[in-house]
Amino acid sequence: MSTQTIASVKPVYQVTETAEAYNLTVQLPGVPKENLEITGENGEVRIVGRRSWQQPEAWKSVYRETGDYQYELVLTHDNAVDVDATQAELRDGVLRVTLPKAAALKPRKIAVS
């Protein structure tokens, strides 16, 4: 990643929970797969996404509602997530991350003998 500082903004995101995992949905319009970084360490999941599109020189901006910022989302968890088994999918500017719960937190069925 370049050392250039770009203003970053928190993207729109949503977290849902199932018995097995936390599902994270992040809206990252304009971010391709190669500009996306997901790191998980110290009870923290960090998602950084940079836009790939650059305004061509001949284009004059007339009206803007978006910015050229990058997206940065940091979520903390209590280490109850199995970071190694995390799965992520980026499609059409939407990132879906599945963070499986650590084995200790999953509901466990105990057979009665």
Binding site: G30, W59, K60, S61, Y63, R64, E65, T66, G93
Partner: peptide
């Protein structure tokens, strides 16, 4: 959100529609 740009020959409209 929508952005508008133009160059000599075209007008461009960019809309963010993730997902």
């Amino acid at each position: 959100p929508v952005d508008l740009y133009q160059d000599e020959a075209n007008t461009f409209v960019r809309a963010e529609l993730p997902g």
